[in-house]
């Protein structure tokens, strides 16, 4: 994580992204975000606009998207905020990519619960498929990032790929998900454990069992 850096400001970068502006739909969305805040407080829309810009860049490049400097400058100018203030935000949050990423940005959680449940294997499996941390794979499909806790500890280990979480992973299940993505299919999001719906206890409920089918008043039993 510590190796986050801004993509260098080169003439090629300026040439490629210097003319960036909202698409018609995104302009409407951007204005909708800005309209959520009182007049003169467009600054508050910095974060949704950066996300929107990243998605637009993603759509243009068929990747998850990232934030080239000219795009950050465009967003800053759009809401009339000094560009350094917008850059501060963009560099602070990890969901903003500062360098180009692949079509699928595989973010593997490596924090303690996931690590105990085998995230090291998951990372190794990713690497085996040709991904390298912080780099775009040769086919342009994959970028691997190890991230901190994503809040799915109950279904550890997990990866986040673009906007979807895939949980309860084993190496085989991860391979299945990635294979499906390679083929352009949409694998099932969430837990990959057969029979599990969300983050309920695996192997069936352990508490409040009577609540499973219908509402149950436990108060009499206290």
């Amino acid at each position: 994580m510590a190796n986050r850096h801004i993509a260098p400001d080169t003439p090629e970068l300026r040439e490629r992204w210097g003319s960036f502006e909202w698409t018609k739909e995104n302009k409407a969305k951007a204005d909708w975000h800005i309209a959520k805040y009182p007049e003169g407080r467009a600054k508050s829309a910095t974060m949704p606009l950066l996300d929107l810009a990243q998605r637009q860049v993603g759509a243009e490049t068929d990747t998850q998207g990232w934030l080239p400097l000219p795009v950050i400058e465009y967003v800053a100018a759009y809401i009339d905020v000094p560009v350094i203030r917008v850059l501060e935000v963009a560099t602070f949050y990890f969901m903003y990519n500062l360098v180009p990423v692949g079509k699928y940005h595989v973010q593997v959680c490596g924090t303690t619960p996931c690590m105990l449940r085998g995230s090291d294997d998951i990372i190794a499996a990713c690497k085996k498929r040709g991904m390298a941390k912080g780099e775009v794979s040769e086919d342009g499909l994959w970028t691997l990032t190890e991230v901190e806790c994503m809040g799915n500890c109950a279904t550890a280990p997990m990866v986040q790929i673009n906007d979807a979480n895939y949980e309860d992973l084993t190496v085989e299940r991860l391979d299945a998900v990635l294979d499906a993505l390679t083929k352009g299919e949409e694998p099932k999001e969430g837990t990959q454990e057969p029979g599990r719906h969300t983050s309920e206890p695996s192997g069936g409920p352990t508490t409040l069992k009577d609540m499973v089918d219908a509402n149950h008043d436990y108060r009499k039993e206290w």
Binding site: A2, I84, L87, E88, T91
Partner: peptide
């Protein structure tokens, strides 16, 4: 507005744009 704090935590850096 030209000086800012980029990145976060231990990696925070003070710089101009």
């Amino acid at each position: 507005d030209e000086i800012g704090a980029l990145y976060r935590g231990e990696d925070m850096q003070i710089t101009t744009y």
